[in-house]
Design a binder for these strands. Structure first.
Length: 204
DNA sequence: GCGACGATGGGCT
DNA sequence: GCCCATCGTCGCA
């Protein structure tokens, strides 16, 4: 695994780990985007795992379809999908090739390239720039054209680097959000990972 | 074909 | 806290 000082994108090996491990390890990692030749990045503060056809909250519950195909592909790819008629969601494909799983990136704290976000999120307080899954895709200029992109290759213009180390004491684990009509037991699985104290990020 | 619904967000009460 | 915009995807006819 990459050392903390590594500024290269996290490698395919990272994403090939069990999905829950990847979801936990992505907390504190740095989401990087190149827009207009400039670098925008932020620290990932919230993730959720979606694992396999038996997970009734996972899109792959429907099996292999044109939409879910990317989740069956190699780990480290972006799975970007559209929902509620207006929102894009960013996921990282995880686990072995052939097994459908992904980690939803739910929130990011913008660090550098703030001026790039200010243009995209006018009339929005910076604390709310990217604190939701659809907000962060808008802030980072991500839409369906980034689907299937290789997150392990900086040439993609979208990748994830190692960043801060988040201690277990600063992580809250609980059920995933927005699964109103998903049956148990999938609905209550503790597959959401959240940095508890955002202020502690500044100190590290 | 077609209808139901969704891994949400923002505005208004 | 409630409401609803808005349309791709899936499942079924």
């Amino acid at each position: 695994m990459s050392p903390v000082c590594d500024v290269e994108p996290l490698p395919p090996d990272f994403y090939e780990q069990p999905t829950l491990t990847v979801a936990r390890q992505l907390l504190g990692a740095r989401l990087v985007r190149i827009l207009d030749g400039k670098r925008l990045d932020g620290i990932i503060t919230e993730t959720e795992a979606y694992i396999g056809e038996d997970d009734l909250a996972c899109h792959a519950r429907a099996g292999r379809t044109p939409r879910t195909r990317v989740m069956y592909g190699p780990p480290g790819r972006a799975y970007v999908y559209f929902t509620y008629g207006m929102h894009w969601m960013l996921n990282a494909v995880t686990g072995a090739e052939g097994f459908p799983a992904a980690v939803l990136i739910r929130a990011v704290k913008v660090v550098s390239g703030r001026e790039l976000v200010a243009v995209r999120r006018p009339n929005v307080k910076c604390a709310a720039w990217a604190d939701g899954p659809a907000k962060l895709t808008r802030a980072f200029g991500i839409d369906g054209t980034q689907n299937e992109l290789d997150l392990t290759d900086s040439a993609s213009g979208l990748w994830i680097e190692s960043g801060l180390v988040i201690s277990d004491a600063n992580v809250t684990i609980g059920p995933r959000v927005g699964l109103y009509s998903v049956p148990e037991p999938s609905k209550s699985l503790p597959w959401r990972f959240l940095v508890t104290e955002l202020t502690k990020l500044e100190e590290q």
